[in-house]
Design a protein around this nucleic acid. Structure first.
Length: 476
DNA sequence: CTACAGGT
C-alpha cells in the first residue's frame, strides 16, 4: 500500500506527557506530494475527573475542561477511533516537534487505555517523522526561498507561529490543533517546494537503521539539533565518539571545540561538566543522538566552503580537532560511565504504586501474553467490565485496571471500587497540604488572574478553571 | 523533557 503522511497536532492540559492529557486532536492525511486525502480530523477529548490542567496551558489554547466534558470523546473512545481509522498501513505520522511532544502524549494515552504504545508508529509499515529539525536544517544549510524569523531578542527561531506569519502560510488561529495542522502542512509544502532535495533526503532518513549507518561511518556528519546553540543555526560538524551504552544512540562530539581538555578526564569529572547547567557553565561538546528520533544529519559533502563560512565552521580547526579525537583512547567508555553517574540506572520497582502507574510506560515492555490480556480489557464494555478478571504478568497493568474502570465506566463500579477511586483522587489532588496539586492549581490561577497583562477574556477563563477545580475536588 | 528551544 502507498505511503501517506498523517499530519497531526495536539492541544494538551500541560507540557508533561506523563502527567498532562490531550484535550484536542487535529489531523489530516495527505499523499506524499502533500495533497490532502479526505477530510481533516478534529476531536475534543474529555479530561478525566482525577486530572487538574495546568492553568497556563488552558490560557494558551482556550479550551476549558468544561468544554471537553460537554463536547468531547473519552480518551478510550478517541483511541479506538485513532487505532482503527487513523492508523492505516504505510502511514508516516508527522507534526512539528511531535517526536519529543505529541508522540509522547499519544503513547501515554495508549498506555493508560490498554493499547500498545508503540505499534502505531512501526507496525503495518508505519513510521514517524518530525518537521522541527527539518526546518532547522533547511535554515542552516539551504535557506534560500524561505523567510526565516527572529525572536524579539534577535535570535534565530523556527517557532511554528512565526514561520507561519513571516511566510504567510495561514490566516487561521494559532494554538488550535486543527489550524496548526494546516500550518504544518503548508510549511512542509514550502520546504518541499523550495528545497526538494533536502526534504526528500531527510524524509528518507527517518529510518533508524539508516541513521545509525550514517552516524557510524568513518567521517564526521553535519548535525543540526536543538541541543546546539542558536548562534550557528544549531548546526555543527560532529563525529561519533562511540555508541551509547544503554540505549540505541551515539555520543556525538562537536568538532568546533578542541577536544584536548576533555579527552583525559575521569568519568566523574566529565559527569560534573556535562550536568552543569548553571549560567557560568562551560559548553560541553558531547551530545546524545538517538537513532529513533529522526535526527537531522547529513554527509559532509552537503557543505560547500561558503556554507561552512556562514555557519562559522573553520575547516582547518575541525580537521585538527578530529585528528585529536581519533587519536584518543577510551573516551567513549569514560563518557558512558559519566552518563551512568548523571542518570543512574533505575532500580526495578518491587511494588508498583497505583499513584504513579499512569506514568510508568517506560519501566519496561509488556509481555506477549499480557498484550493478549490487554486486548480483552479493550474489548470489554459497560456490560462486561464488572465481571472482567484479568491476571496480568505485569503488575503495572494490574494497578492500571481499576483506574481504567473508574475513568471509563464510573456507573459500573462496585461500592468498594468507587470508594477506592475517591481515595485515589484524594491522594492525587489533595495530598501534601499546601503543596498539593489542588493547592498549586488554585494558587496558579490567582497568580495569573492578578497579572496586569491578563485580559478580561483570560480572567473569564481563569474563573471557569476555578469553578472546574472546585467541582472535581474529592472530599478530603 | 533534557539542556537552553520547542511543544502546551
Amino acid at each position: 500500500m502507498a505511503s501517506t503522511f498523517y499530519f497531526y497536532d495536539l492541544e494538551t492540559s500541560g507540557i508533561s506527557p506523563r502527567r498532562d492529557r490531550i484535550m484536542q486532536f487535529g489531523g489530516q492525511r495527505t499523499d506524499l506530494s502533500l495533497k490532502p486525502i479526505g477530510k481533516p480530523d478534529n476531536f475534543i477529548i474529555k479530561l478525566d475527573d482525577d486530572v487538574l490542567p495546568q492553568p497556563d496551558a488552558i490560557l494558551t489554547h482556550d479550551i476549558t475542561p468544561q468544554k471537553t466534558r460537554a463536547d468531547g470523546l473519552s480518551e478510550r473512545e478517541f483511541l479506538h477511533f485513532f487505532t482503527d481509522k487513523i492508523v492505516q498501513p504505510g502511514t508516516i505520522f508527522v507534526g512539528f516537534n511531535n517526536i519529543r511532544f505529541d508522540d509522547e502524549f499519544i503513547r501515554f494515552s495508549l498506555w493508560r487505555n490498554f493499547f500498545d504504545a508503540y505499534e502505531w508508529q512501526w507496525k503495518l509499515n508505519c513510521s514517524r517523522w518530525d518537521l522541527l529539525d527539518v526546518a532547522r536544517m533547511t535554515r542552516a544549510l539551504r535557506p534560500d526561498g524561505i523567510q526565516w524569523p527572529f525572536a524579539p531578542d534577535g535570535k534565530p527561531t523556527v517557532r511554528l507561529e512565526m514561520m507561519a506569519t513571516i511566510n504567510k502560510l495561514s490566516h487561521s488561529s494559532v494554538h488550535d490543533a486543527a489550524s496548526d495542522v494546516r500550518v504544518s502542512i503548508a510549511l512542509a509544502r514550502l520546504i518541499r517546494l523550495k528545497q526538494p532535495k533536502l526534504f526528500e533526503y531527510l524524509l528518507n532518513l527517518r529510518n533508524k537503521t539508516k541513521v545509525e549507518v550514517l552516524v557510524n561511518g568513518s567521517e564526521p556528519v553535519v548535525y543540526t539539533s536543538g541541543h546546539y546553540p542558536n548562534e550557528y543555526e544549531k548546526t555543527t560538524m560532529a563525529m561519533m565518539v562511540g555508541p551509547r551504552a544503554d540505549q540505541p544512540g551515539a555520543l556525538m562530539y562537536d568538532l568546533r571545540i578542541d577536544p584536548k581538555p576533555f579527552l583525559k578526564l575521569e568519568p566523574a569529572q566529565l559527569a560534573k561538566l556535562w550536568s552543569d547547567h548553571s549560567k557560568e557553565a562551560k559548553y560541553f561538546p558531547v551530545k546524545i543522538l538517538s537513532y529513533n528520533r529522526c535526527p537531522a544529519i547529513a554527509p559532509l559533502n552537503v557543505l560547500d566552503k561558503k556554507d561552512a563560512k556562514r555557519l562559522g565552521l573553520d575547516l582547518k580547526k575541525v580537521d585538527k580537532h578530529l585528528a585529536k579525537l581519533k587519536a584518543a583512547d577510551g573516551f567513549a567508555d569514560r563518557l558512558n560511565k559519566a552518563l551512568e553517574i548523571i542518570h543512574p540506572p533505575k532500580q526495578p520497582k518491587l511494588v508498583v504504586n497505583e499513584d504513579e502507574v499512569d506514568g510508568l510506560l517506560y519501566d519496561g515492555f509488556v509481555s506477549q501474553p499480557d498484550k493478549t490480556r490487554m486486548s480483552v480489557v479493550r474489548a470489554a464494555d459497560a456490560e462486561t467490565i464488572s465481571d472482567l478478571t484479568v491476571d496480568f504478568d505485569d503488575e503495572r497493568l494490574t494497578a492500571l485496571l481499576p483506574l481504567y474502570k473508574a475513568r471509563n465506566f464510573p456507573k459500573n463500579l462496585t461500592s468498594v471500587e468507587a470508594a477506592n477511586w475517591e481515595k485515589f483522587k484524594a491522594r492525587k489532588l489533595l495530598a501534601g497540604g499546601e503543596g498539593s496539586a489542588a493547592a498549586k492549581y488554585f494558587q496558579r490561577i490567582s497568580e495569573l488572574a492578578s497579572k496586569p497583562m491578563t485580559s478580561r477574556q483570560q480572567k473569564h477563563v481563569l474563573k471557569e478553571l476555578e469553578i472546574y477545580g472546585e467541582s472535581i475536588l474529592p472530599a478530603a
